[in-house]
């Protein structure tokens, strides 16, 4: 209380006082508007990207053959959905992580749509734009996650 009285003494500009009060109430020296970097999310998203890329490459190679059919590849979809769910649960446990959660939900929706397309039969030329869209999503998610390191080298 003694501190509050001296904090509010005449002479300090009102705007500065308000800003300092907000910081004092927040109880921290620096403000965090978005979640911190999470190494596990970074690694898991990178692994899922690799899994998707391997899957799409195999699909592209074997298109038209029985091994490229949806029924022979349900394991990939099951595993990818479980992986994504685990990443989402971890991301949800970190405060101020709403943007990453939205991105993971969009990725889950794209995965569902890829499976629907696969069930109906995919042609070789249709895989390239899908791969490009998935990689754009993965890159964007990782770019934001790495930026959450805040000034540290992205390689760390």
């Amino acid at each position: 209380m003694r501190h509050m009285i001296s904090f509010c003494k005449p002479g300090l500009p009102v705007r500065l006082a308000s800003l300092l009060l907000v910081v004092a109430l927040a109880g921290c020296a620096s403000i965090r508007l978005i979640a911190d970097y999470d190494e596990q999310i970074d690694k898991s998203v990178s692994e899922l990207q690799r899994k998707c890329e391997t899957f799409l490459t195999g699909l592209e190679r074997n298109v038209g053959k029985p091994e490229a059919g949806h029924d022979t590849n349900t394991k990939f979809y099951d595993e990818a959905k479980v992986d994504l769910s685990a990443i989402r649960v971890r991301a949800a446990a970190i405060s101020k992580n709403e943007i990453t959660l939205k991105q993971l939900d969009l990725l889950a929706d794209s995965l569902d749509k890829l499976e629907q397309l696969h069930k109906g039969g995919l042609r070789r030329e249709q895989i390239k734009p899908l791969r490009s869209a998935f990689n754009a999503s993965f890159t964007a998610i990782l770019k934001l996650e790495l930026a959450k390191k805040r000034g540290e080298s992205p390689d760390k």
């Binding site: 969009l106 749509k113 999503s137 998610i141 934001l144």
Partner: peptide, 15 residues
């Protein structure tokens, strides 16, 4: 197909 592309674009804009 278009939904997958739209999802990717939304993800980029969220970043």
């Amino acid at each position: 197909h278009l939904d997958v592309q739209k999802n990717a674009s939304r993800t980029v804009l969220l970043t």
